[in-house]
Amino acid sequence: MNALVAATIPDAVTFAVCAVVVLSGGIGVVTSRNPVHAALSLVMTLFGVAVLFIEQHAYFLAAVQVIVYAGAIVVLFLFVIMFLGVDREEDLRAEPLRGQRPLALVLGAISLAGVLALSATANWVTGAHKVAGGLTAGHHTDTFLLGKSIFTTYLWAFEITAALLVIAVVGAVVLARRPSSTRDEGSPTPATERDGGPVPAGEPAAAPNEPAAVPNEPAAAPGSHEKVEVAR
């Protein structure tokens, strides 16, 4: 409480507004029925966190947060949501696993209470200061210090992240690539099989990828909305 009083009014107001934005965005992510709305709430949270970074003088990280998270990751989410056509509303009242939600709330409350109790009772500013280089050394900006730290102290980790990104890109390409024509079970599974219904006998098992889903579609016409989803 002391710290809040010692803070200047603009800082306190900024923190309060950002806290509200961050938390309401987080609640929006958890409770939105539409995945697109959840993604937009995630953008709200990310912007709030970026402003909190600025508030703590981590300017470079705030910029990267907006560019990488809000600009790339969320766009990737939205792209996949719309590419898959799953942007329909989900019924949140249905609870297939009985007792899951109360248990999840209890577990979340326990973890929150644990973290808060830990940070309230423990001596949480421990350890030596400026192990990896001072943040306020001289009159350098945070970008300078961060770059120096990454390219000297953490150079090995930085190189490893380069390898990690290459591996991730290759893995994503392999996963997203349509299987070649030699496959027989890798074809887009028709929705009828998923519903337990009879697979049409005339299904072209080794048909080329793209039209494989299309000829099934009229045969599976009177079905539930998973079929509509596939058609989209």
Binding site: A58, L61, D142, F158
Partner: peptide, 15 residues
């Protein structure tokens, strides 16, 4: 990172 005056926390956020 701000409390300890250490740039390591910001580097970790980068990673």
């Amino acid at each position: 990172s701000r409390v300890l005056g250490d740039v390591g926390g910001q580097s970790l956020v980068f990673f």
